[in-house]
Design a protein around this nucleic acid. Structure first.
Lengths: 341, 341
DNA sequence: TTGTACGCGTTATCAG
DNA sequence: CTGATAACGCGTACAA
């Protein structure tokens, strides 16, 4: 069932069928109906590959996600969902490419084979060779996250530096003097993962401004690691009364470790974080956190990409969001740990 | 940069370049090197659309997920991750189609436009028109889940009927006499969602076998709903001492509502569920549950699909898994609710 | 409305 | 045995 078959059965030329479908040339009502009848009968659909080959457009965007084996955080899942959703609304399909490592076949296929009209890249590093590759390929792309030279690309991002600083200030305002930053995983930070580095910077700056005593640590993205990380911190730093974190996957573990240590949140210990709202609200007690609007960011990234595809000379778009901290149940006045009765 | 350009610059014919790349005909070492040099220099990649058009294969599989707006459960996310992972290992790309509703554009594009070599469909209903459509299109497909006529298609599935029955028996063995089943959302069950119905069947059967008193209820897939659902149950059924559930997204809410009611799990109240291991372990206390091996199911689904694509006459594969219940922290001996001091 | 060239890679066929 | 020629897959759009 191709266009030639339809043409034959309708007794018209192939081009007439094409025009009848696209409407780019007028076709008499009579023949149009005859053609449509045949199409409906045979259930004809134009072949996407032929169309793509001719038009040079695939009506597909690539979405580069962290390797599937590594578990996506709730926030990342939110990005994926909103990108897929926004793309569907624009009648675009989404081709997934799980690519975080260095030499990646999937990424190369998607980028090199012109399988997509544009790409959205998640989990960008400060120096990211996927970005280099995309630029070299001349393929429109938008980052969810930005490199160390952000003016050179289009992106949407979360201002982790400011958000973590805000967390510190919030905790400091509550009287906390000894605060820990629990970052994302060691590998991620070592690999130059932007949010990890910017969070460090924000923490260091805010702690210095407030003349506070802090400690920074990395923690893998899962609850188990959150447990051991907090256990270690409580052990090594008896003066600690609060945590600031961007590691949402580890927060349940942090809660657990604190509870095990007999610390009641927020009475004895405070936590302030950066997290998807959904995630923060589902924790018990709900996490005081800057709520990352993942759906909005994903949708805006798709918007930018669509614009860029339509006109590749469009100037780079940048969207840096710093949502306010939603006060929920995990921060309260500081209370020395040996104070508790 | 197309194959003709490469041929011109290497001083050979287009076909020679093609043969040099595919190896389907011997090409002299000399020319092969010259061609490769040009390819490397220009960074040439064959156009995927042209290849697909000629070969009739796209090296892409479609993955039909529930609409992105609806939040995926942890288990569904596990399926997606394992499918993407397994596909990447087989050098297949994954095209996402968020389609749950009736008339879906994205689904129709993927299926009708021959954009994929095969499809994996998630969240299958007992009567599922996507399955009908796929069969009609003659496209190989594998369900994660099965319809009411399972012999007519290939699938991998979880034996919710048996698993929920196992939960009931486990709770009954612990002395529980009044047990509630908390199902997935009302809409899902009303729409004929397989697991919802099979869970009902398993619950009803096991409760009858044990001559127990039960109640069944639906609950939306989020923590908030879990809270209100359990609040209502506790209110309406003061004799209730245990819950069996397949609604993993609502479990945190159930925990919360029980805690609010002053019930300590598992001392005063028991919960047994069906859930991704990761999810069960991350709850506090960790959930006693049948651990669904999502990664294995996804990988097996991809395997089946690959086989089916290679040879569409392959007989349908069926894989029904019923993992044992992992005893964790949420079930204990029954204790009447008014017993507690 | 129709005929036809085109986009690009593959492969059967023919020539050397 | 190597290289070249041409047809093919399918939809689009220009020229007639």
């Amino acid at each position: 069932m191709n266009i030639g078959e339809i043409a034959k059965r309708s007794g018209v030329a192939r081009s007439t069928v094409s025009y009848a479908l696209s409407g780019k040339r007028p076709v008499s009502e009579e023949t149009r109906r005859r053609i449509q009848a045949v199409i409906d009968e045979l259930g004809y659909r134009p072949n996407a590959a032929a169309k793509a080959l001719k038009e040079g457009r695939t009506h597909t965007i690539g979405l580069v996600i962290p390797p599937a084996s590594r578990r996506l955080t709730d926030m990342q899942l939110g990005f994926v969902a909103s990108v897929v959703d926004a793309a569907a609304h624009a009648d675009l399909d989404v081709l997934l490419s799980p690519s975080g490592g260095e030499h990646d076949r999937s990424f190369e296929r998607v980028v090199g084979g012109r399988r997509v009209d544009g790409v959205i890249v998640m989990e960008i590093r400060l120096e990211d060779d996927r970005v280099t590759r995309l630029r070299q390929a001349g393929l429109p792309f938008v980052g969810i996250g930005r490199t160390s030279r952000p003016e050179e690309m289009s992106w949407v991002d979360i201002d982790y530096e400011k958000l973590i600083a805000n967390c510190v200030h919030h905790l400091a305002d509550l009287g906390h003097r000894h605060i820990a930053l629990i970052n994302r995983s060691e590998e991620l930070v070592a690999a130059g993962y932007g949010p990890g580095h910017r969070a460090q910077a924000g923490f260091t700056r805010a702690m210095a401004e407030r003349r506070l005593d802090g400690v920074q640590t990395c923690c893998a993205d899962d609850a188990q690691s959150g447990v051991s990380c907090v256990e270690r911190l409580l052990d090594e730093r008896p003066d600690l009364t609060a945590i600031a974190t961007l590691n949402e996957a580890a927060t349940p573990g942090m809660y657990h470790a604190l509870a095990q240590a007999g610390l009641v949140v927020p009475r004895d210990f405070s936590i302030a974080g950066v997290s998807a709202r959904h995630w923060a609200e589902n924790l018990h007690p709900p996490l005081t956190a800057a709520d990352v609007p993942a759906d909005e960011l994903g949708a805006r990234a798709v918007e930018m990409l669509i614009r860029l595809i339509a006109d590749p000379t469009t100037p780079h778009g940048h969207l840096l969001v710093a949502p306010p901290i939603s006060l929920r149940g995990t921060t309260g006045p500081a209370r020395a740990r040996d104070d508790r009765s």
